[in-house]
Design a protein around this nucleic acid. Structure first.
Length: 234
DNA sequence: GGCGGAGGTCCTTTTACTTCA
DNA sequence: TTTGAAGTAAAAGGACCTCCG
């Protein structure tokens, strides 16, 4: 709360800048008055350029303001304290804003993670159903056409990267013939990806980094603690 | 190098004053 | 108009540090 300054009152003070008693208890009649706007303005302007006063400058300033050098020193002292607490408040606000920002990013990533998990579950289920279907048809079909039509119309092979099955692609591998699948297993191409899917299906605690093929530490602030990440992924 | 005084800062508390319900 | 609570700035007091003789 800014208190209003009364010039009339102040005139009395600056004229007779209080003799500062070291022991105020012995001087009950001591008057304490606020500094004038002009005095404050000058003090503030000096403070802006330098927060600490050299003794010489202090004497000079005291003369200019009609104050005791000690009053000037005390004003600077109090001003530094006020300035510091303001700085702390500003720092707090900045940190809080950063924290809030991170928190909202964290929440949206959590949601994204959930929807990806659901998607994976759906796809795994489809894959499983398809495998069962293929087993039932074994011997009755020798179609080696490379997985043309399918009852699972929603799964489409969108990329065909020269025999290197992509993540999407391996779902399509499930639609290929047993022979082709065996080829993939033998060459090891895409094998680990099947493994990952199996791990996921078996509810094993597959590492998310491994699963998504990236490192969380690269995506997020390194200051995030292990336990916090653990909470995130569990 | 250790000592003590002077003078400075920082931190906490007290005091005087102002505002407002 | 008076009064008391709350807020604020000025000042005091003490701990600590540095410099200097």
């Amino acid at each position: 709360m800014e208190t209003e300054y009364h010039p009339a009152v102040d005139e009395a003070i600056t004229e007779q800048a209080p003799q500062i008693p070291r022991n105020k208890k012995k001087n009950k009649l001591k008057k304490k008055r606020r500094f004038s706007d002009e005095q404050i303005r000058l003090l503030e302007s000096i403070f802006e350029s330098k927060t600490k006063l050299e003794p010489r400058k202090k004497m000079q300033l005291a003369r200019e303001l009609g104050l005791q050098p000690r009053q000037v020193a005390i004003w600077f002292q109090n001003k530094r304290a006020r300035w510091k607490s303001k700085q702390i408040e500003q720092d707090y606000n900045t940190l809080k804003a950063n924290y809030d920002n991170l928190e909202s990013r964290f929440e949206s990533l959590k949601k994204e993670k959930q929807s990806l998990i659901l998607e994976i579950q759906k796809l795994s289920q489809l894959l499983e159903e398809h495998r069962k279907g293929r087993k039932g048809l074994d011997g009755s079909s020798t179609d080696g056409g490379g997985g043309g039509g399918s009852e699972y119309g929603e799964i489409k092979c969108e990329t065909e990267a020269e025999g290197q099955p992509s993540f999407q692609h391996k779902e399509c591998l499930g639609l290929q013939t047993e022979n082709e699948r065996d080829d993939v297993k033998q060459t090891g191409q895409g094998g680990e990806e099947f493994l990952i899917m199996d791990e996921y299906r078996n509810d094993s605690p597959a590492s998310p980094d491994k699963f998504y093929g990236l490192h969380s530490a690269d995506m997020f602030d390194h200051s995030y603690t292990n336990s916090q990440w653990l909470n995130f992924w569990t």
